[in-house]
Simulated assay, not measured.
Amino acid sequence: MAQTHTGTQPLISLQNIYKIYQMGDMEVRANDGISLDIYRGEFVSIVGKSGSGKSTIMNIIGALDVPTEGKYILNGQDVSEMEDDSLAEIRNKTIGFVFQQYNLLPKQNLLENVELPLIYAGVGKKERTERSLESLERVGLRDKWRYMPQQLSGGQQQRVSIARALVGNPSLILADEPTGALDSKTGREVLDFLKQLHEEGNTVVIITHDNSIAVEAERVVKISDGKIIFDGDVKAYESIL
């Protein structure tokens, strides 16, 4: 069972979430009554096979989409029925995204790539530069701030995407298959860095199809056919593999 946090408000609260897509005359339930609380400072993996519904729930957690039914409370705000502009504001203020594909702009240097969330948030140039350099320093790449993405290895590019995720001081770091485009050694380095961020007090949620990645977290949530079929600590999860 998931751990309890008596008297603590969750950072993420999914309450009986349904996401239904209309496919011709058929209804497809990508999420089928999901309820899940994630608290500040947790390191959680959400694992499931392709088609399980994990990507849909990631989009809802990341305020990239809204549920068909149910309520989603993020950082104390109900975002279940927000319009696109409001969702974008929530994303910019609350969530740092790390994707499988690094999504770096090839014609912008590392500093300019990291600055992007702060530009969207309306932060002034001097503060943007200072905060972006600090964020690059956290991932060990400050001295390469003038480099273009193509001058870096895959692991370094992923670290730049992590720096970009961190620059806005988000409440949540949401990582979608963060090692999927990397070799095993470089993937290990990225996972270790995400663990370090958690140890520093950050809330980290990883979305993955890979059980070997899922067990790197402290808590595992497994989704199958749009439902949660397991929610507990890593030791309990490993016992059923």
Results as ranks from 00 to 15, higher is better:
Met1Cys: 04
Gln3Gly: 13
His5Trp: 08
Thr6Ile: 12
Thr8Leu: 08
Gln9Ile: 11
Pro10Lys: 14
Ser13Gly: 01
Leu14Ser: 04
Asn16Lys: 06
Asn16Arg: 03
Ile17Met: 02
Tyr18Arg: 00
Tyr18Thr: 00
Lys19Pro: 01
Ile20Leu: 11
Ile20Trp: 10
Ile20Glu: 00
Tyr21Thr: 04
Tyr21Ser: 04
Gln22Arg: 15
Gln22Val: 09
Met23Pro: 01
Gly24Ile: 12
Asp25Lys: 14
Met26Cys: 07
Asn31His: 08
Asp32Ala: 03
Ile34Glu: 15
Phe43Gln: 10
Ser45Asn: 10
Val47Arg: 11
Gly51Trp: 13
Ser55Thr: 13
Thr56Lys: 08
Ile57Ala: 04
Met58Lys: 13
Asn59Cys: 02
Ile60Asp: 02
Ile60Cys: 06
Ile61Thr: 10
Ala63Asn: 13
Ala63Arg: 14
Leu64Thr: 11
Asp65Tyr: 13
Val66Asp: 09
Val66Lys: 10
Thr68Phe: 07
Glu69Pro: 00
Glu69Asn: 09
Gly70Met: 10
Ile73Leu: 08
Gln77Tyr: 09
Asp78Lys: 06
Val79Cys: 09
Ser80Lys: 06
Glu81Ser: 12
Met82Gln: 15
Glu83His: 14
Asp84Ser: 08
Asp84Thr: 11
Asp85Ile: 04
Leu87Asn: 06
Ala88Lys: 03
Glu89Asp: 14
Ile90Leu: 12
Lys93Phe: 02
Lys93Glu: 15
Lys93Gln: 15
Ile95Trp: 14
Gly96Met: 07
Phe99Lys: 14
Gln101Asn: 10
Gln101Ile: 10
Gln101Arg: 03
Tyr102Gln: 04
Tyr102Phe: 15
Tyr102Cys: 01
Asn103Gly: 02
Asn103Trp: 00
Leu110His: 13
Glu112Gln: 15
Glu112Thr: 07
Asn113Ser: 07
Asn113Gln: 04
Leu116Gln: 11
Leu118Met: 12
Val123Gly: 04
Thr129Lys: 15
Ser135Asp: 05
Arg138Ser: 12
Val139Trp: 06
Leu141Asp: 14
Arg142Ile: 07
Lys144Val: 01
Trp145Gly: 00
Arg146Ser: 13
Tyr147Phe: 14
Tyr147Glu: 12
Gln150Ala: 07
Gln150His: 15
Gln151Asn: 12
Leu152Phe: 10
Gly154Arg: 15
Gln156Arg: 13
Gln156Lys: 13
Gln157Tyr: 05
Ile162Ala: 08
Ile162Ser: 12
Ala163Thr: 03
Ala163Leu: 06
Ala163Val: 07
Ala163Gln: 13
Ser171Tyr: 03
Leu172Gly: 06
Leu174Met: 07
Thr179Val: 05
Ala181Met: 08
Asp183Met: 02
Asp183Ser: 02
Glu189Tyr: 02
Val190Ile: 15
Leu191Ala: 05
Asp192Cys: 01
Leu194Gln: 10
Lys195Ala: 01
Gln196Ser: 06
Glu199Thr: 09
Glu200His: 12
Thr203Cys: 01
Val204Lys: 00
Val205Lys: 01
Ile206Pro: 00
Ile207Phe: 09
Asp210Pro: 00
Ile213Ser: 07
Val215Asn: 05
Ala217Ile: 10
Val220Ala: 04
Lys222Glu: 15
Ile228Leu: 03
Phe230Cys: 02
Asp231Lys: 01
Asp231His: 06
Val234Leu: 05
Tyr237Met: 01
Glu238Cys: 04
Ser239Glu: 11
Ile240Thr: 14
